[in-house]
Simulated scan of single mutants.
Amino acid sequence: MTNINNIQNITQIINGQSTKVSQARGQAQGFESLLSSAQEEIEAAKEGTQTSELGEISAPAFDIQTVSSIVTNKTDKLLTGLESYSSQLNDTSFTLKDIEPVLKGLDEDATSLLEEALSLGEDDQELIDIATSTAITAKTEYLKFQRGDYL
């Protein structure tokens, strides 16, 4: 007999679950109505305010330098440095200790210029000759200074 009583309990539990399922379906229908009303409000807001499309955004212009323009700029910088160096040698207010950092900078610039000049093609042979001559002049002055020719 106890088994029969269990069947009644099971039936009550199943009936309780079916009520819960029907309540959940009612909530789902309520959610659907809320969702559709929210979508309608969004569409109405879109229709009320017109937004303009974004146009094409142009990229900034890049200044692309070729190897020959880099060598030209470095040669010009080195020639300007050599001119400044020669004026400091003639000026008695500058000591050799004052001139030494300038000359070290010229030596580094000359090394950099030689490396760039080697990467030029055969079409730029005149530029290679000018850059090489300028770099050799700077390196020679550095060696003379280190050797003590100006003491």
Rank of each mutant, 00 (worst) to 15 (best):
T51G: 05
T51D: 15
T51N: 15
S52Q: 11
L54T: 12
L54D: 14
L54M: 13
L54K: 12
L54E: 10
L54P: 09
G55M: 09
I57R: 08
A59Q: 15
P60I: 04
F62D: 15
D63A: 14
D63K: 08
D63F: 07
D63H: 09
I64M: 15
T66K: 10
T66A: 07
V67G: 04
V67E: 12
V67D: 07
S68T: 15
S69I: 12
S69H: 08
I70K: 05
V71I: 00
N73Y: 14
N73V: 14
K74P: 00
K74M: 09
D76L: 14
D76A: 14
L78N: 02
L79W: 06
G81W: 05
L82A: 11
E83H: 12
S84R: 13
S84G: 03
Y85S: 10
Y85N: 09
S86L: 09
S86Q: 12
Q88L: 08
L89W: 04
L89P: 01
D91M: 01
S93F: 03
S93L: 01
F94N: 00
F94C: 02
T95R: 00
T95G: 00
L96Y: 13
L96W: 05
K97Q: 15
D98T: 00
D98C: 06
D98A: 07
I99N: 03
I99C: 00
P101W: 06
P101V: 05
V102R: 08
K104N: 14
G105T: 07
G105Y: 06
G105A: 02
G105C: 04
G105Q: 06
L106P: 02
D107S: 02
D107P: 01
D107Y: 04
E108T: 08
D109Y: 02
D109T: 03
A110D: 02
T111E: 04
S112W: 01
S112T: 04
L113T: 00
L113D: 02
L113M: 03
L113R: 00
L114F: 08
E115Q: 15
L118M: 15
L118Y: 06
L118G: 05
S119W: 08
S119Q: 13
L120Q: 09
E122G: 14
D123L: 12
Q125W: 11
Q125P: 07
L127T: 03
L127F: 03
I128C: 02
I128M: 04
D129T: 05
D129Y: 05
